[in-house]
């Protein structure tokens, strides 16, 4: 008898594949977007089944929230875009054949992969500045990667801003219904509370800056979609500084540790946990503001 656990995993995997196919074969752009939102939801369940709660948290915020908003927000413009002619049948056949070949190669590599020995990382974990292994990797062992990642985020925002035609203030949000207004009033405090909770938990359990930042961004976008607050321009005032705060903090800590111990981002004994929390705080602000800026770019008055 096949166990329910195995059956669940099989069904989940097959639905992912089927949904992927349906997303690509969808008749309209809207159908493709909706299928992709459901796809993100099933991905979050797959992360859960693979014992990756950190990734599941991020996917729940990104896949179930942000991606859907981004895609649906771009739909109006995208539907009007002129597209080149559809590729011919031979081109499609070639693409299908190379996709099949790629799958066979990948599958063969995955099946024949020899079992790996336990990582030396397990022995280093007790020395890390954070108790939770994923946070320890992100902000201690591979802190350089995270520094550069925050730089990539800032770069994406600058690139998106440079594509805008004017520096006119954002278009005021259209008048929205009382239902949406009360919903936002109700959800906003909870979202901010959850973001703080996730950030705090990150030190010793699944959670951290990535998840907290995404949840905060979702809250900000919800606020922008309602007319509760006058639209704010992230390119003015102190906002750019706040956007940069994660990156600047990271660079400051790197320079400080370089001067103190001779190695950048090698935290002094005893001070690691506090520094990691500080970096995570800055990173949360940068991630949240970067996503909000990316969402609201192109929505200025002069762009429509």
């Amino acid at each position: 008898m096949i166990s329910p656990v195995l059956l669940f995993d099989l069904l989940l995997g097959l639905s992912l594949l089927w949904l992927a196919w349906r997303t690509l074969a969808a008749h309209t752009l809207f159908e493709a977007c909706v299928s992709f939102i459901v796809f993100g939801l099933l991905m979050a369940l797959s992360w859960v089944r693979l014992d990756a709660p950190d990734v599941a948290l991020a996917e729940a915020a990104v896949g179930a929230g942000l991606t859907g908003v981004l895609l649906l927000g771009a739909l109006e413009r995208a539907e009007r875009a002129r597209v080149e002619a559809a590729p011919g049948p031979w081109w499609r056949r070639g693409a299908g054949l190379s996709a099949l070949l790629l799958f066979l190669l990948l599958a063969a590599a995955l099946i024949t992969l020899p079992p790996r020995p336990p990582l030396p990382l397990q022995e280093a974990l007790p020395l890390a500045a954070a108790e939770h292994p994923v946070t320890a990797v992100l902000l201690d062992f591979r802190a350089w990667d995270t520094l550069l990642e925050s730089a990539v985020l800032v770069l994406a925002v600058v690139a998106a801003w440079s594509l805008e035609r004017s520096v006119s203030p954002p278009r005021p949000a259209p008048v929205c219904s009382e239902v949406l207004r009360s919903l936002v009033r109700l959800l906003l405090p909870f979202s901010i509370l959850s973001a703080g909770y996730l950030l705090w938990r990150g030190g010793h359990a699944p959670g951290g800056a990535f998840q907290a930042g995404t949840v905060l961004a979702a809250a900000g976008i919800l606020l922008l979609l309602s007319d509760l607050r006058r639209p704010f321009d992230l390119r003015r005032g102190y906002w750019p500084l706040a956007l940069l705060s994660g990156l600047l903090l990271f660079i400051a800590v790197a320079l400080g540790t370089l001067g103190y111990g001779g190695t950048a981002l090698d935290y002094p004994p005893g001070g690691g946990a506090a520094l990691v929390l500080l970096l995570e705080l800055g990173l949360t602000v940068t991630i949240a503001l970067a996503f909000i800026a990316l969402f609201s770019s192109g929505r200025s008055r002069g762009d429509e």
Partner: peptide, 10 residues
């Protein structure tokens, strides 16, 4: 896990 978290955000 850490790589994928970074990857999702990027």
């Amino acid at each position: 896990h850490a790589m994928v978290l970074t990857g999702i955000v990027v």
